[in-house]
């Protein structure tokens, strides 16, 4: 009986596997195997490149594709201008790359390619990846902050109008909340993506196990689970966009702190 049971491990989808015998690739003593995660980073980069390339026709009257690319750049441009001001324009390349890279990674990871036997890998569901992106954002904040304001950047930890006796209390709190930013930034994306994929996997195991257990269970458990999966897939598409947006938005807000202090 145990042999017949479908083996659905909701966590298996996050397993990293080295591809094409690259297990032992090393660089300066560190392993740099070309894994399925790296493959999907490559796919994301290529797809994003092709997407933006379609918007490079530079026509005066844009076609649909060009319009789409321009609305994404305009969206990032507006967000940065609203949050940072005129100085925000120079961060458009970074925030655009960040937003689109995460968005495309999230969406590509949701593609139902399992149907044809290829399994998409959502590398944004790994905190090593989201953590690095968060650290890059946080480093930009630190570099810009100290570059522009020098040691005056520390006044960020004393909000405007804090009474003097409160400063020793407020400053550590502000400092801790500042230092937590990269963790919250990276973990939020990682958790949201992982939770969605686990949920879909668990529901799909209900469908498979329910149907295997007989027609009655299939109708009772499998069908509702399947309908729920359809709804959750739509929700996941939404989450994919929202998480990319939140990551870019928070990055721009943090950069605003560095550009303009409080």
């Amino acid at each position: 009986m145990a042999a017949e049971q479908a083996k659905v491990d909701p966590m298996y989808q996050f397993t990293i596997q080295a591809l094409g015998g690259s297990d032992n690739w090393e660089l300066a003593g560190y392993n740099i195997a070309f894994t399925n995660s790296a493959l999907w980073m490559l796919i994301t980069t290529v797809v994003l490149f092709l997407f933006v390339l379609g918007g490079m026709k530079r026509e005066l009257v844009p076609g649909r594709w060009q319009m789409m690319v321009e609305s994404f750049t305009g969206f990032i441009d507006n967000m940065l201008e609203a949050n940072i001001g005129k100085a925000g324009r120079k961060y458009v390349p970074y925030v655009f790359s960040l937003f689109m890279f995460i968005l495309f990674a999230n969406l590509l990871g949701l593609l139902p390619l399992g149907v044809i036997g290829v399994h998409p890998f959502t590398f944004t569901s790994h905190f090593t990846v989201t953590g690095i992106l968060a650290i890059i954002s946080f480093s930009i904040v630190l570099i810009v902050g100290f570059w522009r304001h020098g040691l005056h950047f520390f006044s960020l930890f004393v909000p405007h109008g804090t009474p003097l006796p409160m400063v020793p209390v407020i400053a550590p709190i502000e400092f801790i909340s500042f230092m937590v930013r990269p963790f919250s930034l990276g973990l939020r994306l990682f958790v949201a993506m992982m939770a969605g994929h686990v949920l879909l996997e668990v529901l799909s195991s209900f469908v498979i196990d329910g149907t295997n257990a007989g027609a009655g269970f299939g109708l009772l458990v499998g069908l509702p689970s399947f309908l729920l999966m359809i709804g959750i897939c739509a929700l996941e598409l939404l989450v994919a966009g929202i998480q990319a947006y939140v990551f870019a938005l928070l990055t721009s807000l943090y950069i605003n702190d560095a550009e303009n202090l409080h």
């Binding site: 990293i16 080295a18 690739w25 660089l27 560190y30 392993n31 740099i32 195997a33 070309f34 894994t35 995660s37 790296a38 980073m41 490559l42 994301t44 980069t45 994003l48 490149f49 933006v52 458009v92 390349p93 970074y94 655009f96 790359s97 689109m100 890279f101 590398f123 790994h126 090593t128 990846v129 690095i132 992106l133 890059i136």
Partner: peptide, 22 residues
Amino acid sequence: DTWSSQVFWLLVFFGITFFVIG
């Protein structure tokens, strides 16, 4: 086992994304 590979390839591909596309 994988963190160095993850970091390396992320930097490579995000770097390409940033410098070429961004």
